[in-house]
Each structure stands twice: as C-alpha cells, then as structure tokens.
C-alpha cells in the first residue's frame, strides 16, 4: 500500500440521521462495497459492525511499544547507575529495584501514549490536507449535524451511474460526484 493513496473520484450522498446512516451502511456492505466510508460528527455506536470493520489493531501496537519503553527505561537506569558510573548514594545498591520503579512506570506510559497518538494518525493516513471530499460545499456539514456516505472510485464495484442510483435507493440525498481538483 502506498503511503498516500491517490483518490480520483468520490460519490457523496447525504443521509438524515444516525439511524439512516447505520442502515445505509449495512446495505452498502451487503451490496459488496468495501471502499466506502460513513461521515458523521461523532462516532456512531454500532457503525463498525454495520460497515463490517474489524477491531482496530492499535492496542497490540501500543502494547509492543510500551514493552519496549519498559525495557528501555530499565536498561537506561541500570546502565547509568550500575555500569557506566556507579555511585553509592544514601547506602542504596547500585541497582535499586524499588527506586527504579517510578521512572520505569513513567517512561512506559510515555511510550504507550506517544505510540497511541502517532499510531492513530499514521493508520488513518493523516495529515491529509487534500481530498476530493473537501471540494463539496455540503460536505463541510459533516462535522456539524449532517451524515454522509462516500464511495471511492477505487472500489471494485464502483460505477458512477449505478452506485449513485444505489445510494439513492437506500435513502441517500443530494448525491454529488466529486473529483480531485
């Protein structure tokens, strides 16, 4: 997969409510569409299942990086305090297990948090400042109170006339065909 996917054309249809959007998404999935997305001002409960999306893999990525953060923090403290320049401080051993816990904890959390955010941005292929959707005047309302389905031209079932017609039958309104300018 390329880092930034080129999207030529998108069909956009508007729906009246979260309920209609959810039903339409189910029909899109049953019809066999894959490269479509549902746009809403907030995450709609049950939409992942309706669109047939798998659970996000982000949790596993974060777990892997957090483990590395944990080992890294332990290694850092071990190496600096017990190997590279060992100093006796307040009679504590060079490798003071209990005293190293807070920093290990903090750095584990830090790596986990950074991984979660950077990972989310990367998986979503953001930042993306150019998209055919942005050429629509109505689409701006997606973050206000409107609900949309967009179908990308890369979908195997994409057929401008047919897809637009199908969107209409499942309740889509104000259908637009958008091109990358």
């Amino acid at each position: 997969m390329k880092l930034v996917k080129k999207i030529d054309r998108v069909i956009l249809a508007e729906f009246g409510s979260p309920k209609e959007l959810l039903k339409a998404a189910e029909k899109m999935r049953q019809e066999g569409y894959k490269e479509f997305d549902c746009h809403s001002p907030f995450h709609i409960h049950g939409m992942d299942a309706a669109m047939g999306l798998k659970r996000s893999p982000l949790g596993y990525i974060v777990f892997a990086f957090a483990t590395m953060g944990l080992l890294g923090a332990l290694g850092l403290q071990y190496w600096t305090s017990a190997v590279d320049y060992p100093l006796v401080i307040s009679g504590k051993p060079f490798f003071s297990g209990p005293a190293f816990v807070p920093v290990v904890f903090a750095l584990t959390i830090l790596t986990a948090a950074i991984t979660a955010v950077v990972g989310m941005i990367a998986i979503n292929r953001l930042p993306r400042l150019r998209h055919p959707l942005f050429s629509s005047d109505r689409f701006g309302k997606f973050s206000d109170g409107s609900f949309f389905i967009s179908v990308e031209s890369s979908d195997k079932k994409y057929n401008e006339a047919h897809t637009a017609g199908f969107l209409k039958t499942i309740g889509g309104q104000n259908i637009e065909i958008l091109k990358d300018e």
Binding site: S40, H43, I121, N124
Partner: peptide, 17 residues
C-alpha cells in the same frame, strides 16, 4: 485538524486511541 473528515474508518482508530 490534520484534514480530519469524520469517516467511520477514522473514527474506529480514533476511538481506540
């Protein structure tokens, strides 16, 4: 806003994060 367009495929990862 990083070009956020509220797609559910984005929301899915967003909610997980």
């Amino acid at each position: 806003s990083l070009g956020w367009y509220g797609g559910n495929k984005q929301w899915k990862h967003y909610e997980m994060a």
